[in-house]
């Protein structure tokens, strides 16, 4: 024990070592690169398709200063896919490949290893979102002219990260419990589908939309309404943890609006007065409350599930 570093290794240095270990893995994962390419392809299509269509029909390309802000907020599927490809084998892959053995026998606590893996996931996804938003801003400005409300972009990235980390924590907890990447992925996909399909059914056909406020995913569907007016710009909104960014944008643009929840009420025969006559208003609440609740629910899921992952990981014994 003659060398000072042997007595007390610096915690921050050890944490950075784990982050490097994981980051190098994340950026070399083919699945992650694939999802990033798909995300860029979708953004490119979104940017260029209206231009191509207008050119085809000899229509002028109009300036759209709200292009970026109205397209901000990743779709639920993209959030889920980024979470899945980044952390699906962060824990389970180590157990399956046997690489957990040399890792756990280094002088780093299991808590620090898990923190390092989470930090690396955060950096990886943050960098991906930063690139995507930068691409959208540059592309949007070049095609549709100067853009409004770009100062909201950092909040959008944070919102998307928070939404993604709900899925990250679900997948990490599953990985820690199952120690099997395929099982983790299958269960996570089933949860994602159940939350999205189930929430649509519950939201549209029942009066139980309130329960969706407390589940991860798409949440309940509602309309943004200013009291006394029928509807404001950007009409419908979903309130789940996947839609935090869209709610942040709406809240920043229209801070005093309400969200009104509706359900479809089928009375038989041909609806008089169009499809909107089938919608029954259930109840309303301020958007500020909806946003605050979604952020709190997301934070609660992240804390609870990461604690679960930590507890299981800490107690796991390496038998093989």
């Amino acid at each position: 024990m003659d060398k000072p570093w042997k007595r007390e290794p610096k915690l921050i240095g050890q944490l950075w070592a784990v982050v490097r270990y994981e980051l190098l893995w994340n950026i070399r994962k083919k699945k992650f690169i694939g999802v990033l390419i798909v995300a860029f392809a979708i953004t490119t299509l979104n940017l260029t398709l209206p231009v191509i269509l207008r050119r085809t029909y000899n229509m002028p390309i109009e300036a759209n200063p709200d292009y970026v802000i109205s397209n901000s907020g990743m779709g639920g599927l993209m959030l889920f896919l980024f979470a899945l490809v980044t952390v699906m084998n962060s824990i389970s892959g180590e157990f399956e490949g046997g690489t957990i053995v040399p890792l756990l026998t280094k002088p780093v606590s299991r808590t620090l290893i898990l923190i390092g893996k989470i930090v690396a996931a955060f950096i990886t996804i943050f960098a991906a979102y930063l690139l995507l938003y930068a691409y959208m801003i540059v592309g949007g400005t070049l095609i549709y002219g100067s853009q409004n409300n770009l100062n909201l972009t950092p909040l959008c990235i944070l919102g998307d990260l928070l939404s993604t980390f709900v899925w990250v924590s679900i997948i990490l907890a599953l990985g820690s419990l199952t120690k099997n990447t395929i099982l983790t992925s299958v269960i996570a996909i089933m949860v994602f589908l159940a939350m999205n399909i189930g929430s649509s059914i519950i939201s549209v056909f029942t009066e139980s939309a309130w329960m969706l406020h407390y589940l991860p995913g798409n949440g309940a569907a509602g309309y943004i309404k200013v009291v006394g007016q029928p509807m404001v710009y950007a009409g419908s909104i979903s309130t789940g943890t996947d839609n935090i960014t869209k709610m942040i944008i709406q809240y920043c643009l229209h801070p005093s609006v309400n969200v009104t929840y509706v359900k479809v009420e089928w009375r038989g025969g041909t609806p008089q007065g169009g499809l909107s006559s089938l919608l029954k208003e259930l109840y309303s609440e301020p958007l500020s409350l909806v946003l605050f609740r979604a952020i709190s629910v997301a934070a609660a899921y992240i804390i609870a599930l990461i604690t679960l992952a930590w507890y299981v990981f800490k107690r796991t014994q390496i038998l093989e």
């Binding site: 570093w5 610096k10 240095g13 050890q14 070592a17 270990y21 040399p102 280094k106």
Partner: peptide, 15 residues
Amino acid sequence: LKGWELLDIYGQMYG
């Protein structure tokens, strides 16, 4: 990981 990357990361874990 590359061979040297692995050893470098492990070395960092030892401080």
